[in-house]
Every structure is written in C-alpha cells, then in structure tokens.
C-alpha cells in the first residue's frame, strides 16, 4: 500500500481567547486522524462548529496543532506555503488591483514559480482552462461572483500545488452557478487529477464533488465517518463507452 500524500495523526486544534482576566482554551478539533492519497477528492462535511474550516486552515499551515502532527509527503506542515494552495469562499481573495491574468501572475511570481513572460504565458493558459479568456484583462470588480471564483480556481491550479484546499468555495454563489461550478471542477479534475480537500456543509455537494466524504461531528470536531463514494453507475458506463482522457494520458506517461 502506498503512503498517503497527506497524513493527519491524532490532530487536536485549540482556540485561545482572553476575556477579562481569564485565559480560556477551547478545543475545536479533537484527535482527528486520516490520510489523503494523491488524486483523491476528499470532502470535509459537518455542521457549523465541527471545526472543518479550522482543520483546513491547519492543513494550510495557518494554525499549529496543539497535539498530533500533520505531514505532507513525509514533511511536517509548519507554515503556509505554495505547495498547499487555499481557495476561499470570500470574493475578496482576489487582489482588486490586479487583472484576472495579473492575479494568476501574482501567485506565480510571489511564490517564485515563474517570472516575466513565462509567468504571463502560464497565467493565460490557466485562465483559458476556466474559460475566462474573454475577461482575462479585466479587473475583479467587473466580474460576476461565479467568474471571481473561477479566477481563484485558475490561480490555484496554475500553482500546480500538491494539494488544493477549498474552503466552501461555492457557498456564496447562487444555486445554478454553484451546480455549474461543481461540474466544471470535476471536469478540471478529470483532466488534471489534482488532490483536493474540500470543506462543505452541503451533503449534496459532498456527494457530487467528492470521491470520499469525511463526516465531522461538532463540539468538539471529531471524525465520525469516513465514507468512500463509489463512482455512479452512469459514470462507470460513461467511462467504459467513451474512455477517459486523463487516465489515457496517464498511461502514456
């Protein structure tokens, strides 16, 4: 059995607040262990208070576990880094002073992945992947909510991270756009096979997007269930009849 890409071992997360003369520590997540293998679409599902976003931030390196360890390809996660790109729900994750392409270029240049013309070319390719060529040189405020989230997705994918961390990325979108984005995300996954950890509070979304659903129980957040979602019969037959571009490409490698 291959070693998982990301491993969480007995992870507990605390939240500290000082009110008055008392310093209080609240446990948000307690003793969570799981591994995520490459190309999995792992969903963190839970009610509010289940610590799913906090857990995602810990994987992102923004919060240090009070107990346990998080390792990525065997290396402990200690701080945020471009090998784990986060995508947020908030539209203000885009830099308003940069165009659509500029936002992707920013990510590539800030992380030292690419520079100058190379960065620009890679950014345009990424923007084309999410079908935004038409607005590539516009500023974020000129775009709709769905388009903004696509820019964020393009920026994340251009980084070719080891893991893509998505924190309820479609929750602020209207129902129709959300459904469309879910399908586009799956289409992109079909072509690029990235590893995904996706936080949601929608059962339907978890089952649509995920290949595996981790259910967290609230107060404090604990892992309650680890459910693998078999591909639907329709998907299986579709794959048999029409093949799968990505798996074929993998076979050629």
């Amino acid at each position: 059995m291959e070693l998982p890409l990301l491993q969480l071992n007995d992870v507990s997360l605390d939240y500290e607040d000082t009110s008055g003369n008392k310093r209080r520590r609240t446990t948000v997540v307690q003793g969570v262990s799981f591994g995520v293998s490459a190309a999995e679409r792992c969903m963190l599902l839970g009610a509010s208070g289940s610590g799913k976003s906090t857990l995602l931030k810990a994987i992102g390196g923004y919060i240090k576990p009070s107990h346990g360890s998080i390792t990525l390809s065997g290396q402990p996660v200690l701080k945020p880094g471009p090998d784990r790109v986060m995508m947020f729900q908030e539209f203000d994750q885009l830099l308003p002073w940069r165009t659509v392409v500029g936002n992707v270029v920013f990510a590539l240049e800030a992380s030292g992945k690419a520079k100058g013309k190379d960065a620009n070319d890679r950014a345009r390719t990424a923007v084309a992947k999410v079908k935004l060529e038409r607005v590539a040189d516009q500023y974020p405020h000129q775009l709709s909510g769905g388009m903004k989230q696509r820019v964020a997705l393009a920026r994340a994918l251009a980084m070719e991270p080891k893991i893509l961390l998505m924190d309820e990325p479609f929750a602020a979108l209207d129902a129709l756009t959300r459904t469309q984005m879910q399908h586009e995300l799956l289409e992109l996954w079909d072509n690029h096979r990235f590893t995904l950890i996706f936080v949601t509070h929608s059962i339907k979304e978890a089952l649509t997007v995920g290949s595996r659903v981790l259910v967290l129980s609230p107060h404090p957040g604990r892992l309650q269930a680890d459910i693998s979602c078999a591909p639907s019969k329709e998907e299986l037959i579709h794959g048999l009849l029409f093949g799968n571009a990505a798996t074929e490409a993998k076979a050629h490698d």
Partner: peptide, 9 residues
Amino acid sequence: LRMVGRNYG
C-alpha cells in the same frame, strides 16, 4: 487577503 499573501510565500 492576508492569508492569500502568506499562502504564496
């Protein structure tokens, strides 16, 4: 935005 900045190093 702060988290985005730190995310990209």
